[in-house]
Design a protein around this nucleic acid. Structure first.
Lengths: 226, 226
DNA sequence: GCAAAAGTGTTGTAGGTACACCCATGC
DNA sequence: GCATGGGTGTACCTACAACACTTTTGC
């Protein structure tokens, strides 16, 4: 028999806010199978578009989001992973700043929503497994590439970066040592602005990351340990 | 129009011998397109087999090789990468000991042969690009996982391991420091046998790697720097 | 003035790097 | 005996980890 396999792309999109922690973007499915269940955004690749184009398109259609940090994660192809047909899914890993976007649902999705990675709902298909791979990648990546900056607002107090790392690594970090290491990368620019605190406490200086230096480091596959 | 995309798997198989250095296994295509050109072994996935099963099957059919070290590398899906149809290729990365196998060609391949990674022939499709990704992965992986052992014979003199690393890293290594680092991993067992040299020189002790310890390290995603 | 959060330096230690001479074998 | 390759130890230095008190702000 002729090969009868479909090709899909799915995107695991991570975001971070200090209130909600590290979150992943999920959509509520509007069609069978797994109707009304939460799933990773994605869909079938069109005949004439590249895989990357397909992810960006599906992501935009289903959630309204565009992302500048997108890398391939893994391809899943177990025969029965989709009950309808055989579907190979090429999955992607994306990082965004949630505050940059207003989530919007679409025809295929009733709803699109951020979920803290520690409080995930039951997921459609093998998406639980995909998320596990993605979360593992995120946790490992943050220790050797300064991707934290993709997740933070343009200007942020140093404590935000520290909170992000603490959350992801799931352990406390020594503030002084952490700051020394990050500053040594020379990727941060300290601004003459202070953070606006909601409550008591000394306001911290705001930082911005230097784009050129940051992209240079990423290209060189920079290695740093936290 | 309905989706019309085929799914293939391809395997980049690396081997090492001290005579030929780090080599990759290629097949000479027996069919159009790119007939008589060298290519990475692979082929279309069958409807009811997993991706891993497909790679192992194709690899065995085309070259006679079985591999115990196999991991997914990357998926390539540019629309025009195959001139016939749209084909998504899920590529894999394999390590073998060339001495374990007698290469044999098959119907789809006139010939199967090892090529030093520095002396590659012109390749079919986008296989040059695939190989570049694979070689990059190999070079980086060898610095943080002790995969070198997958490439060496069961018993080997320490100098073989050193040669392998020197070749892959493309720089000289301090023998004493290298030995200290490797031995600290506690993954090697020193045997009471000496190497048989072809020419002059003091014969070295043979080593064997401790399987349990080695697999434990791999599971833990061990990090070591050369 | 007190609670909350940010800012800041030093010291000890472990691990990495650099480095050169002797030993066993083949011819 | 000479050429080839293997085996081995030390000293310096850098980089990381551990660690606590002061400052600024809100209330």
């Amino acid at each position: 028999m002729e090969q009868d396999i479909k090709v899909a792309v799915d995107a695991v999109v991570f975001g971070y806010t200090s209130e909600t922690g590290v979150s992943v973007l999920l959509i509520k499915r509007n069609i069978e199978p797994y109707k009304n269940m939460w799933a990773i955004p994605g869909g079938l690749v069109k005949n004439d578009e590249s895989l990357e184009e397909a992810v960006q398109r599906e992501l935009h259609e289903e959630t309204g989001i565009n992302t500048s940090y997108l890398e391939q994660l893994y391809s899943f192809g177990t025969p029965k992973r989709d009950p309808r047909n055989r579907v190979i899914s090429v999955t992607y890993f994306a990082l965004v700043k949630p505050s940059d976007f207003q989530l919007k649902a679409s025809t295929d999705a009733i709803d699109a929503q951020w979920f803290n990675i520690k409080e995930l709902p039951t997921l459609a298909f093998d998406h639980k497994q995909i998320l596990e791979v993605a979360i593992k990648r995120l946790k490992s990546k943050i220790t050797y590439e300064p991707i934290g900056f993709e997740l933070l607002d343009e200007k942020f107090p140093f404590s935000e970066l520290e909170k992000l790392y603490t959350t992801l690594l799931d352990r406390p970090i020594d503030r002084r040592n952490f700051k020394k290491k990050i500053l040594k990368l020379n990727v941060l620019e300290e601004l003459n602005e202070k953070q606006k605190l909601k409550s008591a406490g000394r306001p911290g200086n705001l930082f911005r990351f230097k784009k050129e230096r940051y992209f240079l480091l990423r290209e060189q596959g920079i290695v740093f340990d936290i």
